[in-house]
Design a protein around this nucleic acid. Sequence first.
DNA 1: ACACCTTCGTTCGAATTTGAACAACAGGAG
DNA 2: CTCCTGTTGTTCAAATTCGAACGAAGGTGT
Lengths: 157, 157
Amino acid sequence: MPSLNEPRWLDPDEAAAWRGFVVASNLLNRRLERQLKEDSGLSHQQYEILVHLSAAPGGSLRMTELADKLVTSKSGLTYQVTQLERAGLVARRSCPSDVRGVIAELTDQGREALRQAAPGHVALVRELLIDVLTREQLAVLAEGLGTVSARLRLEDA
Amino acid sequence: MPSLNEPRWLDPDEAAAWRGFVVASNLLNRRLERQLKEDSGLSHQQYEILVHLSAAPGGSLRMTELADKLVTSKSGLTYQVTQLERAGLVARRSCPSDVRGVIAELTDQGREALRQAAPGHVALVRELLIDVLTREQLAVLAEGLGTVSARLRLEDA
DNA sequence: ACACCTTCGTTCGAATTTGAACAACAGGAG
DNA sequence: CTCCTGTTGTTCAAATTCGAACGAAGGTGT
């Protein structure tokens, strides 16, 4: 019988799920990174910044909100926004309601860059993940990982 | 009706699955990284190196095999193995059957480090992912992401 | 108005990652 | 044996990431 001090190791099914998650995540990131960089000169992170800004009202978000959505550190975001600003895809504005605040805003050029990069990216996500799975698998993935994410978000706060 | 030139965008369900995957992956990595570093002084990558070596016959693997299992670049592995070697957890040997080959081998100290780090890591993986999902969700995850990984592996070769 | 604690975004140094270039070797076709 | 092509692991410069420390400002209770 299992010792009370001994941790509960992962059984084969659990290990397969965990390993599958880690491996798929790494492989996907590598592949998408390569495609985006070659095809649009953008990193995945930069692409996601453009996506979130584009989806936000006014094409703009405060730095902290953006960092939350991206699941990245504040300093990491500062760096990437600076890069995008140099490239002319994003502009920094000051926040009216908070002197400390900085608002990142998508420029017209940024919108254009996103419009140009999106099709290839989405097509690859489809080819590598979405179209490989059945409708049921996708639903389970969405719900399960949604729960996982929600729990993790709570722990931060 | 949808244009033939227009890419097939992700519908809400598909987008939810994709976003859930990206967010959960990032949050999990962040959390595990923090726990491992604080608790054992190891990065997730270093921990995984120890795990794969430990699981291999003789506690040793060639650099390239290891890089494949880890889904990382060759140069990245060289760096990390050097770090682990300095820490005394891994040793480099030359490969008998191939003069170019380098074999990374787990030291006794490395085994001990893994034995000490594993329980906390596994417990957190359980708490954040495994125990949050049902048995069915885990099964779907394992099979679906297994397929995705397999496909991605093939593309590399 | 005052102190107190939190939040905001940036800066800094250290650690890590990557792809390209490289030298050395393996393996097979001729 | 001799080319020729592919592999192996490392080095290198460049890019990116993170956490801690920071100055500046918000917000609250008294």
